[in-house]
Every structure is written in structure tokens, then in C-alpha cells.
Amino acid sequence: MNGLFDLPSDLQHSYLGLVGLHLREALIPVLAGLLLALPVAQLCVRLRWLYPPVLGVTTVLYAIPSLAFFVVLIDYTGQTETTVMIPLAVYSLVVFVPAIVDGVRSVPQETLDAATAMGLGPVRRYLQVQLPIAAPAIIAGLRVATVSSISLVSVGMLIGNQGALGNLLYDGMSYGRPRLVWLSVIGTAVLATVVDALLVLLRRILTPWMPRGARRPSAGNRPEPAVTAGKGAAR
């Protein structure tokens, strides 16, 4: 019990075990959110009138504190990982929908016309033109959603120790061991930073056509970064 990373036995995990758990609880919802967001966003691009109400609903969902979300869900899914992951998936969805819609809409009309003129059907046009050009915006959303998700998992501690690294907070407080709290906070922050850096790397690999360090084009017409701007951590 003297090593820096030694944990009390009631946590039932090693430090690395908690890191793995944390990643799983944070990343699965982000992926689920992304998969759900793609069709929703495509629908919003197709049917313009649908976008404002969808934005409204997502904004309200985003305003619900995560803890309240967790507690309400306990009734249905119990004090489990699933209870933590469902709200995180919803928050990710909220970040992804505007990111994808704005990204896809930012594809210049001439580019789409050129694709149509070359005989690309709607599906090919979506997969080969719109989605790749929207990739930087989508990855920007992915970064925000992932970092936010990693931060929010900790709150799961409050519903029967489902907070992975966050569970250290409770033990640290009740056993009076600041070391455990530090381990939780620093560990979560490092995890978020590393995953964020990997996503930046992913964007570089996926979008070699983007000028390095350049700002997004035609800033003047950029829609307001509604909820995408700088999504934060727990509430």
C-alpha cells in the first residue's frame, strides 16, 4: 500500500484496470453518439426545416445535469455502467449533430455541382465528397465529445461506484488520502489529453489536404459554434 499507484482493495481494480475501465465507459458512448448522429445530421441536411427544432431539443438535453440524468436512469438500468454511458452518448450526439450538419453544409455548392456533373450519385457524393470535406469539422466535434466524455465518467462514482477513475475521489475523501484524489484528477486529465492528441493526429492523417495550422476557410460565413465551441467537463 505504499506505492504511488497502489489502491485500496474496495475499488476492486488496479490503477491500470481503472484506466481501461474509464476509457471503455467514455469511448463507447462517443462512438454510439457518432453512429446515431450521422443519420440524424444527414436528415437535417436534407430537410432544412428539421434542423432548428432538432437543435432546440439537443440544447435542452445538454442542459440537463449529468448527475440528474444518471439518477433518473437508475430506475431503468440500475447502478451499472450502462446508466453512465447512456447520458454520455446523448451528450456526444448533441455535440455531433451540429458539427456534422455545419461541416456538410460548408461544402461549396460548386464542389457538389462538379460531383453531380461527373456522375456521382447521392450516396457516392455523400461518402466521397461531403463526408471527407466535413471531416475536419466532425473530428473537431469528436475531440470535444471525447474530452467531455472522459471528464464526465468520474461523476458515475456517485451512483454506486461506476465512475472508474472517479471512484478514487470517494475513497480519497472518506479515507483522507489526497494521493488518491490527485491520481484521479491527473489520470483523467492525462487520459483526456492523450486521446485528444491522438485525434489531432488522426485528423492530420485523414485530411492531408488541409493546410497546416490554417484557420477554417471563409470564416465570415461560419455559423455560430452553437454548442460545439468549447464543451466542458462534468456538471
Partner: peptide
């Protein structure tokens, strides 16, 4: 600075600040 600040978990930070 923004990226670093974003990476800090609010709930964990709260507990840490409470202890300190």
C-alpha cells in the same frame, strides 16, 4: 491553455479543491 483546461475533470477538480 484551452485544451489543457478542457482536459481537467470538473468533478475531480471539485473534490481536489475541497481537500486542499
Amino acid at each position: 491553455i484551452a485544451t489543457a483546461a478542457r482536459a481537467l475533470p470538473s468533478f475531480g477538480l471539485l473534490v481536489l479543491m475541497f481537500i486542499l
